[in-house]
Design a protein around this nucleic acid. Structure first.
Lengths: 327, 327
DNA sequence: GCGTATTCAGAAATCGATTGCAAGTTTTAT
DNA sequence: ATAAAACTTGCAATCGATTTCTGAATACGC
């Protein structure tokens, strides 16, 4: 492999000069620049990433900490973030926490070890102290959605209160005295609680009855279980507002198994707008979260804060109702 | 941060000695070992990953090249591989190629740049030359499934011919003169073609009629489209054998939209055993691929070949039929 | 023409490890 | 007791960049 040294030797200058020219830093004579650039091009020289990382104490990786990949919301998000990061010359360091504090700690450490430029955090098990620790290691952070944190760093979140509100309104429609349940994520999960707050507001406004929350962990099996257990004894309800699509899909299946028709007997709405909901039977109504747009914002925010040393911002995305067949 | 130098100074020995002790390499006096270890523990010293990578020209990353994350087969696989890699102290460098040759090239380069220890390859756009190039850069490779390559490196694959065979047999059952179509992945996709071969064998044995292949790209939308277009004009078929679960789910939805009952009019089987198929309406019969076991094998094979310099092996996994409601 | 400001470019330290070589010390064999 | 073998350990080079400091060369003002 060609190294900086080789280029320097061939151009008859020092490595310092070559480095400066390549990075467009500081000064250099016009003809020196031309000569060096020519040789760089001829040799197809590319700086060694690892050496660069070591000496700058910063890599071109962005850490992405998520609880799992089974939930299509996350897998789709990872894809979008990867794309957005790529456009700015960054790669993804995937950290799959499985909602396990030990794995979270492991990954926080390896993020620092690898001098990642920034970290995108989505985990129930990351504390404000963790974010501070990352900051102390020169790592910018941004939390996305589904976190329960109040912190001074960057954040992108959908307006979940509003999302829960429009979801519940869609399920209720013009009807009166509707009996509803809220299919929630893990207890203490902030975004889920926000949606629940919006749901409660809609319930109140519409003179409906809230039969409480069912708790799941965002995956399809947990949604199925929670609904099946709840409906098994014949409890009559009119609608289910779910905290995500996967659990809603599980809920549909549970209704089917218990001979409740969707949407005739029970109307159901999901949250996230993942591709599986678009082709389920019946097609799932849901709330869209603009994953693509959020991803661009996330990456740009990280770069903005890190490179230009500007202060962190909070972003709020407006959720959007997508009506399909389950409501 | 504590560095090797600090430890060396505190222990009153050279960095060389500390390095040797930490890595269990070569020789060291028993009391020196004890002393150094004590100080290492006291200071909570952890070697700098990047420096180590630079000097050893090998990192603790394993590259994972996949076409996308939308297909749950991949997202579930990524999760399993990540888990398996972690157990051996490796992390994942996620390379999402989007089946785009340019992105593949980009990632092959960055793999080398980052001195990844090994690469797990699943892409239609990687050539044998690419694998050779990786080898020349000291990167062990293993291809998984869905590749069209004959190469001398490691590989894990399900016996897709057999998988296609048992899938088709399940759809056909004991019936005669069945009219079937095969819902395929992209043309030239080896594993899909293998399954097709197995399918053809079963068709022949059972005296059934093959109406040909429909092509998709493994995502749910493409499965829906392909089936919808094919069935729209009233063509009568008895069964669909799909190359993956996502497309099968799309196919179910297409049948529903065209008033064909599943499994009464048309029986459908998927492939991969992803979680969405377990809760669809009707529940999807499928072929299981042992993602977890494969993931362990993949990581262990990479380590075996790389660290112990042993020759590459090929692994064949036997597929397993999972009967649910669509057949 | 001379002092000063500005450019340009190199030497050398640094980032934080690993490792080949050689020297010094201890063991073992005879 | 002594030569040879086997351990321990340190020096210094290396991995491949970045960056501070400094000196030389050039430009500029008057």
């Amino acid at each position: 492999m060609t190294t900086l040294k080789d280029i320097a030797r061939l151009a008859g200058v020092s490595t310092a000069t070559v480095s400066r020219i390549i990075n467009g830093k500081g000064e250099a004579g016009l003809d020196t620049i031309r000569k060096v650039n020519k040789i760089v091009a001829e040799m197809g020289y590319k700086p060694n990433t690892v050496a660069k990382t070591l000496s700058r104490r910063e890599s071109s990786l962005i850490a992405l900490l998520i609880p799992n990949l089974n939930n299509p919301f996350f897998s789709e998000l990872v894809g979008e973030i990867e794309r957005a990061a790529n456009q700015h010359g960054f790669q993804i360091y995937l950290c799959n926490s499985e909602d396990d504090r030990e794995k979270v700690e492991y990954y926080l450490e390896t993020m620092a070890d690898n001098y990642v430029m920034g970290a995108i955090i989505n985990s129930l098990f990351v504390t404000v102290e963790d974010l501070r620790w990352l900051e102390s290691r020169g790592i910018s952070t941004i939390t996305i959605d589904r976190t329960q944190l109040a912190h001074p760093y960057s954040a992108v979140a959908v307006d979940h209160v509003h999302g829960g509100y429009i979801a519940a309104k869609e399920v209720i429609g013009e009807r009166h005295h509707q009996r509803l349940v809220f299919l929630s994520g893990p207890a203490n999960e902030k975004s889920s609680e926000d949606r629940y707050a919006g749901y409660l507001k809609a319930v109140k406004e519409a003179d409906a009855v809230n039969l409480g929350q069912l708790f799941g962990n965002f995956d399809i099996t947990s949604g199925y279980q929670a609904c099946y257990d709840f409906l098994q004894d014949g409890t009559i309800i009119d609608g289910i507002v779910s905290s995500n699509d996967a659990m809603a899909l599980g809920a549909i299946r549970a209704c089917q198994d218990l001979q409740r028709q969707v949407p005739k007997d029970i109307r159901i709405i999901g949250y996230d707008n993942t591709s599986y909901g678009a082709y389920s039977i019946p097609r799932l109504s849901t709330i869209n979260q603009f994953k693509k747009k959020s991803s661009d914002i996330i990456i740009e925010e990280l770069i903005r804060v890190h490179q230009h040393n500007q202060k962190a911002k909070k972003y709020q995305m407006e959720p959007e109702l997508i009506t399909r067949e389950t409501t």
